[in-house]
Every structure is written in C-alpha cells, then in structure tokens.
Amino acid sequence: MDSTFSDQTQVAVVSTFSHLINTVFSGKLNAACWQRALSGDFQEIVSKLELKENLTEISMDDLRSLELSEQGCEARTRIKNDFQLLTDAGASPSLNLIKSYERDEEFDFIPTDVYSFHVDRSPIGTDTFLCTYYGAVSEILPNHQAEQKLLVPAIRLKLKELHEGREEEFEHFLTEHYFDLHYEAKPGARPIKLGLGHLWRLAVDHPDQSCLPCIHRAPLEKEGEYRLLLIC
C-alpha cells in the first residue's frame, strides 16, 4: 500500500474486522481499510477455478472442492473466513473470478460501466465491501479530486440532446440511466490503489448517509490474468 495512504483524511486504516464495520463515516471520511498482509497461494486457487463466463461467481462449495497445496489451503481458509465474517455481519458476499466486466458501448461519451469512476447508491443504509485477493486492484478517488461527469459542459450538452422528454423530466432521466453516479478525475488527481488482501468498506449514497459516497472504479485487467474478488 502507498506509504502516504494512512495520511489520507478520506480513509480510516484499521487492524480488525470489528473496527472496520464499526468505523463511523462522516465528513470527508468515507472509506475504511482493514490493512493486512495475507499469506497463502491465491494464484494457485485462481489457476484451478473454472471460468465459465467473463465473470463467474464461485461458491464456497466450488472453493472447498479444489485440491490444493498447503499454501493454497491457507489462502482458501482466509477467503472462507472473510466470507463468514461478512455473512455474520449481515452482508451477502460474492466471490468472483473475473476475466473482464461488461463494457458500456451505448453511451460512449459517458460510459456507465464499472471501469468508470462511480459511486454506489442504495435506498437503504448499507456499505460496499471488497477485497482483491489476486490480479489488478480497484481504485478510489478523493471526492475533491473528481467532477461529476454530467456537469462537464460538453457531456451535459450531449445528454440534453439524448433526452427526448420535457425539460422538467431531465433530472429524472439522468438518475434513471445512472448518469449522475459517474465521475471523471480532475487534472492532477491521485487515485488510491486498494492493494491486494486488504478488506475495504466504502460509503454508499443512501438517505441516511452523513458523508459523501466513496468514488471508486474497477481496474483494467492485466492481459492473460484473472482477478479474484470478494465483494458485497
């Protein structure tokens, strides 16, 4: 992890799962990281899993069925423990083997896929949890280093051209198509890489939230390399 990471006022770095889930988000603080150095061979797990689609959900039964070395078993135990911790906390974790995500080719001037910096939204109080065990890692972006894409004059003009309804319906149109959730980095912005093995909790846009939602994006995958990601 970047040596300047712990200085970021946006992020709380913690040492236990209990601290992770109990950190209170407010003001600029909208991300928490359970910082860990995980042992075990996660690459072995990736090499023995079957990719059925570009994104394949791996069940705990799939994971348990793998024949692994001692180091592979150690990595598997870590994943299973994280899965159980999140489940016990009321979350619904999913373990994903990822070759690539689906790209948004409909709106090329404002793509709304996960490779774009974006925030998550929920009608209820919740958070996004994620941990990359292997492969390219996600990034977050400090809110003051980002601009909502729909506020960029050239993009907003194209959105108005795309909108065929009445002027008073324009804001609903933006929300309906998730355009309002996407951001672009300002010049000189410094995204924060989330690193391998760390379990993250990111603030989501919901009615009871007392901080700004955390802006994040999925990475472009490395050629010939899959990602192993726990997310909920």
Rank of each mutant, 00 (worst) to 15 (best):
L55F: 06
T4V: 02
Q10W: 03
L55A: 12
S65W: 08
T56D: 02
E50G: 07
L66P: 02
T56Y: 12
A32M: 08
W34T: 01
E50P: 02
S6R: 09
D41R: 14
D41W: 07
A37T: 13
Q43Y: 08
V13H: 02
G27W: 14
N30T: 03
R36K: 15
K28M: 03
D61C: 12
D61E: 11
F25P: 00
L63Q: 04
Q35V: 10
F17I: 06
M1P: 01
N22H: 13
A31H: 07
E57T: 15
F5K: 02
E44T: 12
A37I: 09
Q10H: 10
S39D: 04
F42D: 01
D7W: 00
A37W: 06
M1S: 09
G27K: 10
E53W: 12
K28Q: 11
W34S: 02
L20I: 11
F42G: 01
K48M: 13
D2G: 04
L29I: 07
T9Q: 11
S3K: 11
S15P: 03
M60F: 09
L55E: 10
D41M: 06
F25G: 02
W34Y: 11
V24K: 07
G27F: 12
L38F: 13
E44H: 15
S47N: 11
F17Q: 02
H19C: 12
Q10L: 04
I58C: 02
S59C: 10
